[in-house]
């Protein structure tokens, strides 16, 4: 389809719209081979040519791996197609004449920068709290010194595949970041190198999660449904297990 007509209902905030509101933009001549973000590019070029302020939205790699894009499209983080980031979503998944509503991630911990752009520094701070293995460059032993069972390595990978986009928070009715947090805790808890400081890690990361003002998980699993990498809530269970064990079943007192 060469010439789709769309009605875009886009959240604008900042500049002309200090409090934030939806603004409607009709857009003609949309090609169904376009990616969703290319469709927004076309709209922005049109706005610029009319000397209007273009819509701010974040994006970078446009191949589904950097985790920068962050649009809630018709209510779905990254749009209605599952296991697909907004940048990999194409217009052939929409109908001619459709009204598309585009909103930013909504979470108290992700304040809006402008329009559809939010600040996700909270995720960095969660990782800084303990989402790493304490090893300095050059200290490592040979890579094959510790064998890791193939399936185990693969499970660790399933968690490590997180792109840090924040769709889990955006999707969660409680705006909880447990899937993001659980993915990192689970990844590092499943490799022998990460087990050494697993107890401290989970304590510190959960604490940071709470400080940032994310909500509490009630096992709704919307996060898994919207996660572009399909990360399972099984990793949240492992996080819970780790946290409970590191508190109740450990002599260590977290600080």
């Amino acid at each position: 389809m060469e010439n789709m007509k769309l009605k875009l209902r886009i959240w604008r905030q900042g500049g002309k719209y200090p409090k934030g509101q939806f603004v409607e933009y009709p857009l003609d001549g949309v090609n169904d081979h376009m990616s969703f973000l290319e469709m927004l590019d076309v709209l922005n070029e049109k706005l610029i040519s009319q000397k209007e302020d273009p819509i701010a939205f974040e994006h970078d790699c446009r191949e589904g791996i950097c985790g920068t894009c962050s649009l809630v499209i018709n209510g779905y983080p990254h749009g209605p197609m599952q296991q697909t980031t907004a940048c990999q979503l194409h217009m052939r998944n929409f109908r001619d004449g459709e009204t598309i509503t585009i909103e930013p991630w909504r979470s108290r911990a992700f304040p809006i920068v402008k329009d559809l752009v939010v600040n996700r520094d909270a995720f960095d701070r969660i990782i800084q709290a303990g989402g790493y293995i304490s090893i300095d460059t050059g200290q490592a032993q040979d890579g094959n010194a510790i064998p890791i069972e193939k399936d185990q390595a693969s499970h660790a990978f399933d968690a490590a595949t997180c792109i840090g986009c924040g769709a889990c928070v955006a999707a969660c009715p409680n705006a909880s970041a447990m899937l993001f947090l659980g993915a990192k805790v689970s990844h590092l808890a499943q490799v022998p190198q990460g087990k050494v400081e697993a107890e401290t890690r989970v304590q510190r990361m959960v604490h940071q999660h709470d400080v940032e003002g994310f909500g509490q998980c009630s096992n709704i699993t919307a996060c898994e449904a919207e996660c572009p990498k399909g990360i399972s809530v099984e990793h949240i269970a492992r996080l819970n297990r780790q946290y409970i064990a590191s508190t109740i079943g450990s002599e260590k007192v977290a600080n």
Binding site: N74, G75, Y76, T101, R108, A175, G213, T221
Partner: peptide, 14 residues
């Protein structure tokens, strides 16, 4: 935790 502004379009996929 959701913030002051709620989603205009609500879905319930799990």
């Amino acid at each position: 935790a959701r913030g002051d502004q709620r989603y205009a379009v609500k879905v319930d996929r799990t």
